[in-house]
Design a binder for these strands. Structure first.
Length: 465
RNA sequence: GGUCCCUUCGUCUAUCGGUUAGGACAUCUGGUUUUCAACCAGGAAAGAGGGGUUCAACUCCCCUAGGGACUACCA
């Protein structure tokens, strides 16, 4: 029973992080059930839609690994079909032409009764013979009695009195469709079986069901997911920090981590917090989606990111790195660099929260020799340490098994005979090897660098002191 | 104003009538450590309020409060 989901953003900006999660849920559900995940750009608002925004949505989804099936649909391109359906509704008597002008409607809204009820068109039951030769909109002839009930996979059963719904406009006077019409027609034509979207659309599910019924179409399964808020419980906006998916790439988050964090925000699988996308696909279901909105927590995201930086396969990490670098407008890492990087990846991944941190740590293997010490770390290369080096270097030169463990033992013994803490020796050595103390462990670096290179760097440093 | 939705530690959440209400992040204390850090041990921390139903309610029902969505020829 082919499941079809869709993500339908309007291209008026970047890909919002809330939208990204909606897309993720749709994607997860489709993948979990062997279904299709479709993308539709809701570009019927010509004034606000831009190609750049459409591209930003594509880019954001691609970065997040949320590949859609087939070509993306353009809602605007389907306007003839929308008009056709509006006409069909007219023919079936479920819609009517309304000649009320915008001025008349506004006048009604400004009036006392306009404060409460919605606009009731006098043309609903008017004799067609009295119709003027003037522009008109096509309105839905919404039922006045009865109840509209929908069953939502997340919200449960929700109902409204039909009287609550107004005769919404289906086709504007310029023959373009409104959102309400376009969505229903497109979802129907695209064969969408499950509509997973933000719960700001919950009422629209009722309105749209009216159209489905009028056309005699099957109503899809609804799942209205709660929105994401900022840490203060208000709608997530710029002042909370990043709201665009792209920004997270630029900050150095892994797509795998974003998928994990976003999936876990509002959905759960018992106590599982850290999981792969593969697991998320296996576990995902609509029933476990929470009904309450959740707040975005950067601290937790950092923690999730740290986990994935540590555990993701090498090629995924490299891809993430390249994505990050591209987001900074820098040239990609070359093959030569990657060859140097790959062997030290294990020591780079430890204790790193974000991709730029990892790159910082990689300086010891990538950076040009000799290293000019960082401003804050230059103090380590003082005369005392110079003396220490004089006694230590010969010992190092005599090492036969150049491993992390052997070196650590040697340093500990050495520090003990010197009568100083290990930190007094190992810490300045980091500056010698990398120019900074923000590096991997001293012994990891030495082991990775090899004996000759290590000795050469000590030489560089003593020349400077 | 009206309609609809939501409400467990600071945060994300588990619990599907019977638990000392569990976990994770953050936080605090102690330990360890060559580092931005990490790790180990331990602590503090929650069912919005009020009524019901029931032998028993975080869990079911109602009310109140607070938050949110919608109420466009936007989507």
């Amino acid at each position: 029973m082919g499941i079809v989901t869709r993500f339908a953003p309007s291209p008026t900006g970047y890909l919002h992080i809330g939208g990204a999660r909606t897309a993720l849920f749709n994607w997860l559900y489709a993948r979990a059930n062997g279904g299709k995940f479709l993308l539709r750009i809701e570009d019927t608002d010509r004034a606000r839609s831009t190609d750049a925004a459409t591209q930003a949505i594509y880019d954001g989804l691609k970065w997040l690994g949320l590949e859609w099936d087939g070509e993306a649909y353009s809602q605007f391109a389907r306007k003839e079909r929308h008009a056709e359906v509006a006409q069909a509704m007219l023919d079936k008597g479920h819609a009517y032409k309304c000649y009320a002008t915008k001025a008349e409607i506004e006048e009604f809204r400004a009036s006392p009764e306009g404060k409460y009820g919605s606009f009731q068109s006098p043309w609903r039951d008017a004799d067609p013979a009295t119709a003027p030769d003037a522009p008109y909109v096509i309105r839905l002839k919404a039922p006045r009695d009865g109840v509209m009930e929908i069953t939502d996979e997340v919200q449960g059963r929700v109902s409204w009195k039909n009287a609550e719904f107004d005769d919404m406009i289906l086709l504007r006077s310029d023959r373009t469709p409104t959102y309400m019409l376009a969505v229903v027609v497109d979802d129907h034509d695209m064969g969408v079986t499950h509509i997973i979207r933000g719960d700001d659309h919950l009422i629209n599910a009722g309105r749209q069901s009216l159209i489905y019924n009028a056309m005699g179409w099957d109503i899809p399964v609804f799942a209205h997911i709660p929105l994401i808020f900022g840490d203060d419980g208000k709608k997530l906006s710029k002042r909370h920090g990043a709201t665009g998916a792209e920004e997270y790439r630029a900050m150095g988050y892994l797509a795998e981590a974003m998928r994990n964090y976003l999936a876990r925000l509002g959905w759960s699988h018992g106590d599982d917090e850290l999981f792969t996308t593969k697991q998320a696909i296996e576990w995902f279901n609509l029933k476990a989606i929470n009904k309450a909105p959740s707040r975005f927590d950067f601290k937790k995201l950092d923690n999730v990111n740290k986990f994935h930086i540590e555990n993701v396969p090498d090629d995924v990490l490299i891809t993430g790195l390249q994505d990050y670098i591209a987001s900074q407008g820098r040239a990609p890492l070359t093959e030569a660099v990657l060859t140097k990087l790959k062997p030290v990846l294990p020591i780079l991944r430890e204790r790193t929260k974000k991709l730029p941190d990892l790159l910082d740590k990689a300086r010891f293997i990538l950076g040009p020799r000799p290293f000019a010490p960082d401003e804050n770390d230059a103090k380590h290369l003082n005369s005392v340490f110079n003396g220490i080096l004089k006694r230590l270097t010969p010992q190092l030169a005599g090492v036969t098994t150049w491993t992390k463990e052997e070196l650590e033992t040697l340093f500990r013994d050495f520090a003990e005979t010197e009568g100083v803490g290990l930190g007094k020796v190992a810490q300045p050595m980091k500056v010698v090897l990398s120019g900074t103390t923000k590096s991997p462990s001293t012994f990891d670096m030495m082991a990775a660098l090899g004996k000759d290179e290590t000795l050469a760097r000590i030489n560089d440093a003593t020349a400077r002191m």
